[in-house]
Design a protein around this nucleic acid. Structure first.
Length: 438
RNA sequence: GACCCCUUCGUCUAGCGGUUAGGACACAUCCCUUUCACGGAUGCGACACGGGUUCGAUUCCCGUAGGGGUCGCCA
């Protein structure tokens, strides 16, 4: 038996992957990476009534999206399987027999089997909370097996941790209060309990408990909003853990190198969407054009944009990469690239009509464009400078007007970039429509 | 009700008896700038409260308050 670190994430497939669960998985994964150990995925599906294949898939998808690959588990295998508790009944029966032989269980009239607590004081050694000393319990003996023969969480959890050679249990603090029961079971089996690290919970921004219904509780909601997995990964890790590093923006690999469960803060943490968004913006703007576009394209399609030219679309998205923080914000920044019938924002209409000479300026620019043979940013820039000079205004006065005309908005990429991307014909049509309608 | 965990700027946190209590996000102002952003600079802003221990408490101990959790034939 080696002394290699073995950690596990043991979700129950009763719903989607919760951010709290994701963070637990993240910390386990980091610790395995840090220690050169194994990260094991075990599915705790003993409650047949509540488990669904959809939930199962959602959890695996969520973990994969975050980049949390497991060394042993579903679809990967391993020599300590099966990794579904629903397939391990024989193992549990054998372990229960051990307890029967040791006279640590008794069967009730209806067939339920209960474990006789030792009722000795128990100390939980915890990497995050420190030693937690408990007096001997006065709780009723706990049920291990239901009358129908199925087993209860505490029992299968301990049996599997023994069988799978789990050395460290990193899990949510909601399990801390039950851990003495697990330790009692380990002792009853004559085993040494694993090292525990109970991590604090994630709370809503208002400090209340984050439950299934709350905003941002599901990992899927981050995918839908246009978060990048590396940003969610990074942010979730910084919730309760601050590495000794110059920056908080770290790759999964860097975090694994630095990770130490003893450094996890022991207080619950509130979810801060602003900071999560900030992380996302950081990762977003460092993506090369093709990678960004690959991720962004589904969002454009979802908005119903008609993409005529993939290269132009990719460049359009790339041109606003520093303006957005989430891919879901793409719509408001790129719709006019894909549709010439864009609306004119009220502020734009007001500004265009503020001065009578504005339309004359636009007309002059249109005439210049119409006469151009070269259509690239440099030529466009020169042409605009000359047009402005000819009209006795600064380029700074002409640019905003063109932006209004070309996009209907007062924000966006550089005007020459827009002109270049939409092309000469479309640029002229856009200006003409503006002159006619506004 | 019993037991357990927790408490530093608005938020995430550093701190492990002596610090001008540091950083990040957010916010504000300024700079840059054809817009919006990015970026840069500066600023605002915290040790829950009350007792101890100590020459000296954010730091150690006790209590109070507040928050969270557990006490299932759920996981």
């Amino acid at each position: 038996m080696s002394n290699q670190v073995r950690v596990r994430f043991a979700p129950s497939p009763t719903g989607y992957l919760h951010v709290g669960g994701a963070r637990t998985a993240l910390f386990n994964w980091l610790y395995a990476g840090n220690q050169g150990g194994k990260f094991i995925l075990r599915i705790e599906d003993t409650d047949e009534a509540r488990n669904t294949p959809e939930a199962m898939a959602a959890i695996l998808d969520g973990l994969r999206w975050l980049g949390l690959d497991w060394d042993e588990g579903p679809e990967v295998g391993g020599d300590r399987g099966p990794y579904y508790q629903s397939q391990r009944k024989g193992i549990y029966d054998a372990y229960l027999a051990q307890l029967e032989a040791a006279d640590r269980v008794y069967t009730e009239e209806n067939g339920a089997v209960r474990f006789k607590f030792s009722r000795e004081p128990i100390t939980i050694p915890d990497l995050v909370c420190g030693d937690v000393a408990l007096a001997g319990t006065e709780e009723p003996d706990m049920t291990l097996r239901r009358p129908d023969g199925s087993y209860i969480f505490h029992f299968v959890n301990v049996v599997d941790d023994i069988e799978m050679g789990i050395t460290h249990v990193i899990r949510g603090e909601d399990h801390l209060s039950n851990t003495w029961k697990h330790i009692d079971l380990f002792h009853a089996f004559g085993k040494t309990p694993p090292v525990y690290a109970h991590i604090p919970l994630i709370l809503n921004p208002d400090g209340t408990k984050m439950s299934k219904r709350d905003q941002g509780a599901s990992v899927v909601s981050y995918m839908d909003a246009g978060y990048l997995p590396q940003a969610v990964f990074n942010y979730l890790c910084m919730l309760g853990w601050t590495p000794k590093a110059e920056t908080e923006k770290l790759s999964a690999r860097e975090m694994a190198t630095l990770f130490d469960p003893k450094q996890i803060h022991s207080a619950n943490a509130r979810f801060d969407e602003k900071k999560a968004v900030w992380f996302n913006a950081q990762y977003l703007r460092e993506l090369p054009q093709d990678e960004l576009y690959a991720l962004a394209r589904p969002f454009l399609v979802k908005e119903g944009f008609s993409i005529q030219n993939e290269d132009m679309a990719a460049r359009a998205v790339y041109s606003v990469r520093e303006k957005i923080s989430l891919l879901g914000e793409l719509k408001g920044w790129t719709h006019y690239f894909f549709n010439e019938d864009y609306p004119y924002e009220a502020e734009v209409v007001t500004k265009l009509n503020a001065k009578t000479e504005n339309k004359a300026l636009l007309q002059a620019a249109a005439e210049t464009f119409a006469s151009m043979n070269q259509w690239d940013e440099t030529s466009l820039h020169d042409a605009l400078e000359k047009t402005a000079a000819a009209q006795s205004v600064k380029a700074g006065a002409l640019m905003p007007l063109l932006r209004f005309a070309l996009t209907g908005q007062n924000r966006g990429p550089g005007v020459t970039t827009i002109l270049d991307l939409v092309g000469k014909d479309s640029s002229l049509r856009r200006i003409e429509r503006t002159l006619q309608t506004v």
